[in-house]
Simulated scan of single mutants.
Amino acid sequence: MMHFTKKLAGALLAATLFTTVASAQTVLKSSDTHPDGYPTVEGVKYFGELLKERTQGRYSVDVYHSAQLGEEKDTIEQVRSGVIELNRVSMAPFNGTVKETIVPALPYIFTSEDHMHKVMDGAVGDQIKAAFEPVGLVVLAFYDAGSRSFYNSKKPIKTVADMAGLKFRVIQSDIFVDMTAALGANATPMPYGEVYSSIETGVIDGAENNFPSYDTAKHVEVAKYYSLDEHTILPEVFVMNKAAFDALTPEDQEIFKQAAKDSVAKQRELWAAKTTESRANAEKLGSQINDVEKQGFIDAMKPVYDKHVKDPVLQKLVEDVRAVK
């Protein structure tokens, strides 16, 4: 009954939004947990600029950054039900509802950011996009989120043995919980916005994320040890409520898709610049950044793959990812 209610709400919203005269402006709401100026926020803003230009002002986008509309778990439900039209979120929270998203979230599945780009821009990315539609979402784009590494307030981590007993915040995803456990540490899933105070008060010892998040969320102030284990290179996903997308004319659907595709190049450019800037800023603030014995981390991931890649569809996807050179 709830599923039907959500579908009905989405359809009613779409009807309200899109049965307007061609000259009227429709303002779409988009959510992001990150602060204004962050590369994902700016990527969606750029999408909105292109959309406004290419539809002669009929559509525009208001980006609600800094978790103004809630944390990712909340906004995923908002966009699925049609309360908001657009959302930029991490792919990991979808692991329970879109099984194909498990593969990009696997530790060390990608060998580099360039490898991730080739995979997500190709047939594997298309297959993952298609898997979102049955849950009421259309994927417009995959955005960069760089590589994620562990950081903490206690000590440098150079080997797997150094992880023992430390408590880390992770994304609310079983893969991330199991990955952390496989390394001998304790995982504490919690919303992104609670991480700073939790490290500061000792509820957790650290977290794992990319340099721009480590910098802009000010985690560098409370966790000075950043270790370059680079366990995941997890793309972000920019989604639209399917009922709203389906209510567009075929011509406007193409405009939306092309504007999103064009925003990817812009977002990647912004991401690369921000990563360099944030790493430099972290070092300036006294962060100790160290390399790790990465092969040990990679070897520890076998039980994670054994548990999460039992489905033949996912096994084939893993093979397809690894075949991309």
Score class of each variant (00 low, 15 high):
residue 192 Y to R: 13
residue 255 I to W: 10
residue 246 D to Y: 13
residue 189 P to N: 05
residue 156 P to E: 12
residue 233 I to R: 13
residue 176 F to I: 02
residue 216 T to D: 00
residue 207 A to C: 14
residue 263 S to P: 06
residue 231 H to N: 12
residue 240 M to P: 09
residue 143 Y to W: 06
residue 210 N to D: 14
residue 196 Y to M: 04
residue 174 D to S: 14
residue 168 F to C: 01
residue 265 A to Y: 01
residue 203 V to Q: 15
residue 251 E to S: 13
residue 200 E to S: 15
residue 247 A to G: 10
residue 248 L to V: 03
residue 203 V to E: 09
residue 208 E to C: 06
residue 161 A to F: 05
residue 216 T to V: 04
residue 167 K to S: 02
residue 206 G to P: 01
residue 239 V to C: 03
residue 229 D to G: 07
residue 153 S to H: 11
residue 190 M to P: 03
residue 166 L to V: 07
residue 219 H to P: 02
residue 258 Q to A: 09
residue 227 S to A: 01
residue 218 K to L: 09
residue 250 P to L: 09
residue 178 D to K: 00
residue 223 A to W: 00
residue 269 E to C: 11
residue 193 G to N: 11
residue 163 M to K: 02
residue 218 K to F: 01
residue 170 V to T: 07
residue 147 S to M: 02
residue 201 T to C: 07
residue 171 I to Y: 13
residue 249 T to Q: 03
residue 240 M to F: 08
residue 168 F to W: 01
residue 198 S to L: 08
residue 215 D to I: 00
residue 167 K to E: 04
residue 269 E to V: 12
residue 156 P to R: 04
residue 145 A to F: 11
residue 181 A to G: 01
residue 202 G to S: 04
residue 202 G to Y: 10
residue 210 N to S: 15
residue 157 I to K: 01
residue 184 G to N: 08
residue 179 M to L: 14
residue 248 L to Q: 04
residue 214 Y to R: 01
residue 177 V to T: 06
residue 147 S to D: 05
residue 217 A to D: 12
residue 218 K to M: 01
residue 272 A to D: 14
residue 241 N to D: 08
residue 159 T to N: 06
residue 224 K to G: 00
residue 184 G to A: 03
residue 255 I to K: 13
residue 210 N to F: 08
residue 179 M to Q: 15
residue 274 K to P: 01
residue 180 T to E: 09
residue 273 A to F: 08
residue 255 I to D: 04
residue 243 A to G: 08
residue 169 R to C: 11
residue 254 E to Y: 05
residue 170 V to E: 09
residue 173 S to N: 13
residue 213 S to K: 03
residue 240 M to K: 03
residue 252 D to T: 14
residue 197 S to G: 11
residue 243 A to Q: 13
residue 142 F to C: 04
residue 181 A to W: 01
residue 217 A to F: 06
residue 251 E to T: 15
residue 160 V to E: 04
residue 265 A to L: 07
residue 213 S to I: 08
residue 164 A to I: 05
residue 250 P to D: 12
residue 266 K to N: 09
residue 186 N to K: 14
residue 205 D to R: 02
residue 253 Q to T: 04
residue 158 K to Y: 11
residue 215 D to H: 02
residue 157 I to S: 00
residue 155 K to D: 06
residue 246 D to S: 07
residue 234 L to N: 15
residue 174 D to L: 04
residue 176 F to Q: 12
residue 196 Y to P: 03
residue 175 I to E: 05
residue 257 K to L: 14
residue 205 D to Q: 04
residue 163 M to V: 02
residue 149 S to K: 09
residue 254 E to Q: 15
residue 185 A to H: 02
residue 222 V to L: 07
residue 262 D to V: 08
residue 181 A to D: 13
residue 145 A to Y: 09
residue 255 I to N: 05
residue 254 E to T: 15
residue 160 V to F: 00
residue 155 K to M: 04
residue 233 I to M: 11
residue 230 E to N: 15
residue 189 P to D: 00
residue 176 F to L: 09
residue 208 E to I: 13
residue 248 L to E: 06
residue 237 V to S: 09
residue 167 K to M: 11
residue 270 L to W: 04
residue 247 A to Q: 13
residue 260 A to K: 02
residue 153 S to E: 01
residue 209 N to D: 13
residue 194 E to T: 11
residue 151 Y to D: 05
residue 175 I to D: 09
residue 176 F to R: 08
residue 186 N to S: 15
